[in-house]
Amino acid sequence: MRIRISHAISYEYAEPARHITQILRLTPRDHDGQHVMSWRIEPSVDGRLRASQDAHGNIVHSFYDEGPISSLSIRIDGLVETLDLAGVVRGSERVPCEVYRRDTLLTGQDDALRSFAEEAATGAGTQLSQMHALMAAVSDRMDCVEASGRRGVGAAAAFAAQKAIAQDIAHVFMACARHLGLPARYVSGYVAEAAGLPHANGAHAWAEVHVDDYGWIGFDCANGLCPIDTHVRVAVGLDYADAAPVRGSRQGGEGESLNVIVSARESEGRFANQ
């Protein structure tokens, strides 16, 4: 599928902001089943946009603006060609998969989560079927709510609430997989609009688990499936904080309001510039 993504993130500050630094993980990479045909990322600042790679191999952009400014926006336009590989991810890995067995602040488990994970996996033979059973159990239990304005609370709290934003549903799944001894990581990306996908046409989050015989496989519990050609992977990490699209700091800038407009749709055009 050829997916056109446009994403605009705008901040307005009631009091002007100064010394703004932002670190962006908003640029996808190529790998099997994902080819980035064009990608533009444009912050509304004068400063230079510096590109680098982080430990997970994500493309990172950072910029600094002296300010004072009363608004800031980041515009992204891109076109990505995807193939349905049933969630299997192959590409270059920078860190050994054992790293992703670590528990983090957002994926810490409690007794309830642990027994839930064990129960869900009972009876499933292979690691792969365990993870499918786990995805079904998490999808069944957790109600996915829209992110607008909500912040993540981490796996244990989200699990207890039974209702969470997509990033915390990914955390719940990762916490369970890690408890069962499998490496699991967080993925932030986009999902194109498609029939039968309740959480599509926008930014989304899911998880990947390293499974014997297959390697990394994606599990999107909010949509109840392994990622297909509707999913564009942008960044991975130990948890949301590690892969967040934007991490920033500023001085001043009280009364911040954030506005996000994002769309991810199948592109009709045959050429990259259409």
Partner: peptide
């Protein structure tokens, strides 16, 4: 054992 390093929260991936 590799997991003593890799699973250690003090092993900072930024430094690799």
């Amino acid at each position: 054992p590799p997991d003593l390093v890799y699973r250690n929260a003090c092993y900072q991936l930024e430094m690799v």
